[in-house]
């Protein structure tokens, strides 16, 4: 797992999560009316965790 790939994947998720929180602040219910924030966070955290774990495994 290269550092570039890890950075790209984490960046995608952080940008996505930031966009969700900004949208939810500007227009409450815009995102939460359609999807559960719990699942949005959970999915991103799982993918980011797998990515970091893979990078860590390569470094060892």
């Amino acid at each position: 797992m290269s550092r570039l790939a890890t950075a790209m994947i984490i960046a995608v998720h952080l940008l996505g999560l930031a966009a969700v929180m900004v949208l939810e602040t500007i227009r409450p219910g815009f995102v939460t009316g359609a999807v559960s924030l719990t699942w949005v966070w959970l999915g991103s955290i799982v993918v980011m965790s797998v990515t970091i774990w893979q990078l860590h495994r390569r470094d060892q």
Binding site: M1, S2, L4, A5, T6, M8, I9, V12, H13, G16, V20, F30, V31, G33, A34, V35, V40, G43, S44, V47, V50, T51, Q54
Partner: peptide, 26 residues
């Protein structure tokens, strides 16, 4: 990029595109 990072990257993009589509549609 090797296979796994590429899959994870596409998965990440698909995840957010999917969420965006559901939100816009709703």
């Amino acid at each position: 990029m090797t296979k796994l990072p590429r899959i994870l990257l596409w998965l990440s993009l698909a995840w957010w595109v999917g969420i965006g589509a559901v939100v816009v549609d709703h």
